[in-house]
Design a protein around this nucleic acid. Structure first.
Length: 598
RNA sequence: GGUUCAUUAGUGUAGUGGUGAACACACUAGCUUGUCACGCUAGGAACACGGGUUCAAUUCCCGUAUGAACCGCCA
């Protein structure tokens, strides 16, 4: 070893010991004959004191040392003089009196400061990611990520789960997200697909009798990126045999709760995660991933406006659509500009806009008159309608109501988005809250307008509710499934289901999805066949590690907790991937490039 | 695939239809023995690229590139 101790681990009790340290220059303070250097290694930093006159290096050489140079230091741990201590530093009571200094390596001036927590241009951060990761914020994020994975492995191992790796080169499937494809050299014109998740493998492992499987698995999806979506990401993939839905939910709840207790990051979180059926979540929050850190529930206001003279509302009701709204306590302090943003949100989702009602500080209402109420709808709204709203929401001066009318799909999207926006505008979100919940009873099917057919909402192997199986053909919309999501702070952080373990039922589902039996056998024949050999009832869940770590690190982008992420255009600015390949490579793979841009 | 925003020394920011393009840190040179975001003196260093409008463009317009946000897409 080139060092005997770690910079950040030295303490006052080590005073007097002779140590060898090595690390990077975090900062230097050159006083001429006396130089201070904050030396950083992976454990932290410590101040080293260089008295230039009694050293192996000349004063000139010492004065040339710069940030990020790599130094080896031989010296004595010394207690700092009274008045020279630094309470901001964990090692602030001690310092190293240097006897021998070695310049192990020099460094170019870094392209951005390493020793400050600045917001930086993403291009530069990604190009010099190895330097970006030297910054303490990123360093801590990756350490936290390790702690999370370490805890998970221990926790599940203690519960007798075993981790099994599954292939990265897989057969392509037409369902779900777009696959990343890998051309085969040996089989001209054929391709492997990188796994979107180890879904089929883990079900096959259940047939193999492992009963409790997990894997911290890399998954790949060739879809457009977002702050919570990278082309490759990491899932905690879990599957168990002989379980019901509630067993899996309890397991995950226990995993998350005990992990949060162990990590002790100062978050508030529920010890029992509420279960919210999908339909209820859509009704109350307009979303299947509600942020439960605040209320602002959506309400059905249709009944208030049954005989309204507000034309747009009457028209909507005539079409059997609904009028829904959010009562925002204190919402009247939102500015005109902020309210205009709500309209922009509505338009973004294809609605005409939203209606807002304002109850000023002098708002009063009686059976016959009101004061301090304003709205574009004021001319048309009746006192009875206003009274009903007033009583229903117990409206106080300073409140506001935002209303969206139309098709449920539309009003849900609009109001869900406004709900989140309003909460952030009004500062209702507590940073230290982790509001976990499970969304359950997802619909089995959803209609895809683009493909013009029914598709599996979760995935093909999801178990429908026993009592809903009869509606698969006649009323697919009505079929609920044993699919569930783990949601936290408005983000989906995990998704799973109880699976179908009998081929007859699976074939019935495939039929409903318009997948011909022969095609089904071609694509899923191996699973169907496996199910003929005593497949146990099974189910699982796959929490997203990146999203969970990002939540715990209070980062809004999963790139901040991934060592080497890709940009929005799925490129790696550090290595240059993806890159062109030579013709000999292409020939070997039997590929020809047809690039319209070249 | 679509919409929007951004791009000024190494970094982070300021600013303008007419240049002396400002500030801080970093950098270079020098001074400096108790600092800790050390201090002091001096210096070098920038308007992403291409086209257009204009007497004149870093500034206005269009396009390209790159990055980001959102919609579509995606669990």
């Amino acid at each position: 070893m080139l060092k005997t101790n770690m910079c950040g681990e030295l303490q006052i009790k080590d005073v007097g010991t002779s140590v060898i340290l090595a690390g990077w220059v975090a900062r230097r303070r050159d006083h001429g004959g006396l130089t201070f250097i904050d030396l950083r290694d992976s454990s932290g930093t410590i101040q080293i004191v260089i008295k230039n006159d009694k050293l192996n290096l000349t004063e000139k050489e010492i004065s040339q040392i710069r940030n990020e140079w790599v130094l080896g230091v031989k010296g004595i741990v010394t207690e700092r003089q009274e008045g020279a201590r630094n309470s901001n530093m964990p090692t602030g009571d001690i310092e190293i009196s240097v006897n021998e200094l070695e310049i192990i390596n020099q460094s170019n001036t870094p392209p951005f400061p390493i020793n400050e927590d600045l917001s930086l241009d993403e291009t530069n951060r990604m190009k010099y990611r190895y330097l970006d990761l030297r910054r303490s914020r990123m360093n801590q994020n990756l350490k936290l990520r390790h702690d999370v994975m370490h805890f998970i492995r221990n926790f599940l191992t203690n519960k007798k789960f075993i981790e099994i790796e599954t292939p990265i080169l897989n057969v392509a499937t037409p369902e779900g997200a777009r696959d990343y494809l890998v051309p085969s050299r040996i089989h001209p014109g054929k391709f492997y697909a990188l796994p979107q998740s180890p879904q089929q493998w883990k079900q096959l492992l259940m047939v193999s009798g492992f009963e409790k499987y997990f894997q911290i698995a890399r998954c790949f999806r060739d879809e457009d990126l977002r702050s919570d979506r990278q082309p490759e990401f990491t899932q905690l993939d879990i599957e168990l045999s002989f379980v019901e839905e509630k067993d899996i939910l309890i397991l995950i709840e226990e995993l998350m709760v005990s992990m949060l207790k162990e990590l002790d990051l100062g978050f508030d979180f529920p010890l029992n995660f509420p279960l919210i059926p999908y339909s209820e979540s859509m009704e109350k929050y307009g979303s299947d991933k509600p942020d439960l850190r605040f209320d602002l529930e959506i309400n059905d206001l249709s009944s208030v406006f049954l005989n309204t003279s507000i034309k747009i509302f009457a028209d909507v009701l005539k079409k059997d659509q609904r009028i829904r709204g959010i009562h925002i306590p204190g919402g009247n302090k939102l500015t005109k500009k902020q309210l205009q943003e709500f309209n922009e949100i509505a338009k973004l989702h294809g609605a005409m806009g939203v209606a807002s009602m304002h109850f000023d500080d002098d708002y009063k209402i009686t059976k016959s008159e009101y004061d301090g109420f304003s709205s574009l709808l004021e001319k048309f709204i009746s006192i009875d309608e206003l009274l009903t709203l007033n009583d229903r929401f117990n409206i106080k001066p300073g409140d506001a109501i935002i209303i969206s009318a139309g098709h449920d799909d539309l009003t849900s999207q609009v109001l869900a988005s406004i709900r989140n926006e309003a909460a952030s505008m009004l500062n209702l979100v507590k940073e230290t809250d982790l509001a976990f919940c499970f969304i359950t009873e997802f619909p089995m099917f959803e209609y895809s307008d683009s493909a013009n057919k029914w598709t599996a909402m979760h995935h093909l192997f999801t178990m429908p509710f026993e009592e809903d199986i009869q509606y698969i053909a006649s009323d697919p919309k009505r079929v609920r499934s044993h699919a569930y999501d783990l949601v936290c702070n408005g983000q989906e952080v995990g998704s799973g289901s109880i699976r179908i373990h009998k081929s007859e039922l699976l074939l019935k589902i495939l039929q409903q999805l318009g997948i011909d039996e022969s095609i089904a056998h071609e694509q899923f024949g191996h699973v169907l066949e496996a199910f003929e050999f005593g497949a146990p009832p099974h189910g699982g869940i796959a929490p997203g590690i990146d999203r969970i770590v990002a939540l715990l690190a209070k980062e809004s982008d999963i790139r901040e907790v991934i060592a080497f992420p890709k940009t929005k255009t799925a490129s790696d600015l550090l290595t240059g991937a993806p890159s062109k390949i030579g013709t000999e490579n292409l020939d070997e793979l039997h590929l020809k490039i047809d690039d319209p841009s070249s």
